[in-house]
Every structure is written in C-alpha cells, then in structure tokens.
Write a protein that binds this DNA or RNA. Structure first.
Length: 254
DNA sequence: AACGGAACCTGAAAGC
DNA sequence: TGCTTTCAGGTTCCGT
C-alpha cells in the first residue's frame, strides 16, 4: 500500500519502539542479542542496523504494516515476522504478501539500486530533469521507476502531476524546464501532505474505515476537478489506474 | 538498456 | 443474499 510518507511513518515508529534496545526475539535467530542502532529508510525500503553488523530490510509491498504489540500477545493474523526488543514487540503483518522481511549482513541490491530519496537526499530539480530526459516513456510511468525518484508510488505521482498541471501521458523527453520544476514542487508538496496524515503508533491509509479520501484527485474519477470543476477521468497507464483532469492537465502547454 | 505487459497474492468493494 | 468481477498505494520477470 504504502508510499514514501507511510514508510517514513513506519520508520519513525520502529525507531521509537526499538532503537537502543537489544533484540530478545526475532524472525531470524541471528538477530537476537544485538542492539538496534538505527532505523533508516530509502524510498519504500526500511533498514534496521544492528550492533554486530546484522541488517534487517523491510518493504511493505501493497499491504504490509508494522504493528506495536506486547511480547506476550499472540501472533497476528497474516503476521510474517516479529522483532522484540526492550519490552516492545513489532509485528510485520502483510495479507497480500507482496512485502519483504529479510535479515542480511550487507545491503540488498534493491536498496542500492534506488535513485535519490526526496527526504534523505533532497529532490533536486536538475537531477529530476536529467533522469526524466534520459527516458522515452510517459511521465507517469517514469515517476514510478524507483531509480528516478525513490519512494514515489501511484498516489504521489498522480497528485504531483495534477499539481503541476501535466498530462500523465506526456512523454518524459518532451517536458519543458518549467514543467519539471513544477513537478518537483508538486512531489515535495504531496510528500509533505502525506506525512502530515500520520501521527501516533498506528499507520493510517485511505481505505481505513470511515476515513475520507485525503487526496485531491487520486481515487476521485468522476468527481469535479478541485481546481477547474471539469470531470476527472481515469485511464490506465503502464497497467495502473491514473486519474487526471483533462482540462487543466492538457496534453500541450502552448 | 529500456520498454510493455503479465505474474505474483489476497481481501474488499462493486456489480449482477 | 450470494456469486462474480474488478480493483488495490508494489516489485519482478519475461519477451521484444
């Protein structure tokens, strides 16, 4: 499910629960007895660094989440692994099983292959322009490539393109410098907005009961565009749903 | 190397 | 109500 903001929230939670404490029980026996030094994140990957050189990598996939439990509490439904330390018990739960939970002694390839992370490295307009210009595909699809900007998923891409008034089908090599600058601003804003949704120990997601859709266009096909009132349209791009406004995200800018 | 599409899973929501 | 279809915020693999 999650994109950069949800994963960053998970990172902060895990850090709060586990950092500084010694692992007493874990999905991998090799981790027991080591102290949790830090919890870092790049894109949608989480990495826990332990004192004797072990590393835990976690990707939430579509439906993964980390829950805070007491060590004596029973196994969760769909629990795929746990990490107990300092009286806390973090449970990795993932119904759809697209997520990952790995114990390694070195960085995994997927982690090393990630492009710049907007929070860790900053999102630089020139770097974004270079990465996009090197590709020949639609902007929307390029934004989902984790080598372009780490952590962008379908929601952030959809929201940022709407912000920047760019048609998701526009080719990466045809974007103007102004459009790329607007896109970078749109991504930063969407990330900040996403981060602001999260507080406390529990992850929150769009589909959670009673929750309103907090996004401007994502999941709002058929509704009026919040900017120009034209009807938002849903198309499929790279096998994923994409919502946009055909009036204020025009194919051509001039 | 890069692209487009299918595959991997399961649950929830919508459609009939 | 119950069965069927569609959709889901992610990555990876495969053929071109």
């Amino acid at each position: 499910m999650p994109e950069l903001p949800e994963v960053e929230h998970a990172r902060r939670c895990l850090e709060r629960w586990l950092a500084g404490a010694t692992v007493t029980r874990a999905f991998s026996g090799a981790l027991v007895g080591q102290r949790v030094l830090e919890v870092s994140r790049r894109g949608k990957w989480l990495r826990l660094t332990l004192s004797e050189g072990a590393r835990v990598f976690s990707h939430l996939g579509m439906t993964g989440r980390w829950l805070r439990r007491r060590p004596q509490e029973p196994r969760e439904r769909w629990e795929r692994g746990r990490l107990d330390a300092g009286g806390e018990s973090a449970r990795f739960v993932d119904p759809r099983r697209f997520g990952r939970l790995l114990a390694r002694r070195r960085d995994v390839k997927a982690w090393e292959a990630l492009g710049p992370d907007p929070l860790v490295d900053g999102l630089e307009t020139h770097a974004l322009a270079r990465a996009l210009a090197a590709r020949r595909r639609t902007v929307k699809e390029a934004l989902l490539d984790q080598r372009v900007v780490a952590g962008v998923g379908n929601i952030l891409a959809t929201e940022a393109l709407w912000s920047a008034r760019i048609d998701p089908r526009a080719r990466t090599d045809r974007l103007s410098a102004r459009q790329v600058a607007a896109l970078a601003r749109g991504l930063r804003a969407a990330i900040a907005h996403g981060l602001a949704q999260h507080a406390g120990d529990a992850p929150s997601y769009v589909q959670d009961a009673g929750g309103d859709n907090p996004f401007r266009v994502y999941g709002r096909a058929g509704e009026p565009c919040p900017r120009c009132r034209a009807t938002l349209v849903r198309i499929v791009l790279g096998a994923r749903g994409t919502t946009f406004c055909p009036r204020c995200q025009p194919r051509s800018t001039r």
